[in-house]
Amino acid sequence: MNVLLVIAGAAVGAPLRYVLDRAVQARHDGRFPWGTFVVNISGCLVLGCLTGAGLPAAWTVLAGTGFCGAFTTYSTFSYETVRLTEQRAYRYAIGYTVASVAAGLVASTLGYAAAHALLG
């Protein structure tokens, strides 16, 4: 049953990631990968909320593992960081890495705290 929940969540998360990434990136010129950045930070916020809400295990598998797992993209983050480094855009690469990790931690913490305060 869990496999079906992961598949169902991923079936929504992956296309939504693509659409949001393209929509954000289309509005920004330049080297910084805003699309992936926004997707990953919003995914951290959602996963923080899910964790803080204390949902039943099935919902956690569906929304956390399935949806958030397919929505966020560590591989694209890594690839874009390498690409920026190859282009000798070192400040962008370092800024992207630091901002992604820091903002992701802040977003997940805020999501957790908000959901825990409202629902926990």
Rank of each mutant, 00 (worst) to 15 (best):
M1R: 06
M1C: 05
N2I: 05
N2P: 07
N2F: 06
L5T: 02
V6P: 05
V6I: 15
V6T: 14
V6W: 10
V6S: 08
I7M: 15
I7Y: 11
I7N: 03
A8G: 05
G9R: 01
A10N: 00
A10D: 07
A14W: 07
A14E: 05
A14N: 09
A14K: 00
V19D: 05
D21E: 13
R22L: 03
A23P: 04
A23M: 11
V24C: 11
V24W: 12
A26C: 02
R27V: 04
R27S: 01
R27T: 01
H28C: 03
H28R: 14
H28Y: 13
D29V: 02
G30K: 08
R31T: 07
R31Q: 03
F32G: 03
G35H: 04
G35V: 00
T36E: 00
T36R: 05
T36N: 05
V38T: 14
V38R: 12
V38F: 11
V39Q: 02
I41N: 11
I41D: 02
S42Q: 09
S42W: 08
G43M: 07
C44K: 06
C44W: 07
L47Y: 10
C49R: 03
C49E: 01
L50C: 07
L50F: 09
A53Y: 13
A53W: 12
G54L: 05
G54R: 05
G54K: 07
L55S: 03
P56S: 09
A57E: 14
A57Y: 09
A57N: 06
W59K: 10
W59S: 14
L62V: 08
C68D: 02
C68S: 00
C68W: 04
C68V: 01
A70N: 06
T72W: 08
T72P: 08
S75N: 04
F77Q: 06
S78Q: 10
S78R: 08
Y79C: 03
E80H: 07
T81V: 12
V82R: 13
E86S: 12
R88T: 10
R88K: 14
Y92D: 15
Y92W: 10
A93R: 10
I94F: 15
I94N: 11
G95R: 06
T97R: 15
V98L: 15
A99F: 13
A99D: 12
S100P: 00
S100F: 04
V101W: 14
A102E: 13
A102I: 13
G104Y: 03
L105T: 12
L105N: 14
A107T: 06
L110F: 13
G111R: 05
Y112E: 02
A113F: 08
A114P: 00
A115I: 10
H116P: 01
A117N: 09
A117G: 15
L118Q: 01
L119I: 15
L119Q: 09
G120H: 13
G120K: 15
